[in-house]
Amino acid sequence: MSDSLTHVNESWLATLDRVLRGCFVAAENAPDGALAVPLRRLLQLGLTLGVIAGACIGVYALFHGGDAPVLRVVASAIKVPLLFLLTAIVTMPSLYVFSALHRLPVDFRMMLRLLLLSVLVHLAVTASLGPVFAFFCASTDSYPFLLLLNVLFFAIGGLLGFAVLRRALVAVEKEARRILTVWCVVYAIVGLQMGWLLRPFLGRPGVPFAWLRAPEDNALVAILRTIGELFGA
């Protein structure tokens, strides 16, 4: 317990390992307000994992041609960390207000750390699935299949991140978990839509490279359309 507070000089992998094991959010560390996580270390880790996850998605361009394949990989590697950062910025204030409104025993800074920890789990899972995704990129022709696989991998990461956050607040009363569940739904919708706004990540074959595309439709419509594309025409 207390030794988890002192490992400042440990390797990145060791910190990540402890994040994934849920050491930082263990019940005995969480409720006293001071969540002992080196914030800078977490940010660096998150950035690295995001770049890895993004690059694995961008690999699609290397196998499926199109203009500026390297630039597409770079763009994805930049946009995945950005996606998580922007989603956190959008959802954080409302989470704070509603948890303060319900008098949850967590203050803003602790909330930020908890959120960062769960985002880190999310990123770690997604990045760890990155090689699998890259393999599918190399061996699959179907663009809609890869698009949906990408969404699925992000969703799996999100669910595991949510599980960690839930475990962290398990000591707190039922009300807290209810807010958290509602908030996670909001977070998922915002994340999905943010991903849609920051598209392209894969880049549809034949469409010229762009850092961003003009806003149109929304993520849910796009996913339904992609499912239709996969099974239909």
Partner: peptide
């Protein structure tokens, strides 16, 4: 509280502006 909550929801409002047509 009304004003503060509105402010906390401002980023979500911005996202709605960019996503719903």
């Amino acid at each position: 509280t009304l004003g503060l909550t509105l402010g906390a929801l401002a980023p979500l409002t911005l996202l709605v502006s960019l996503s719903v047509f």
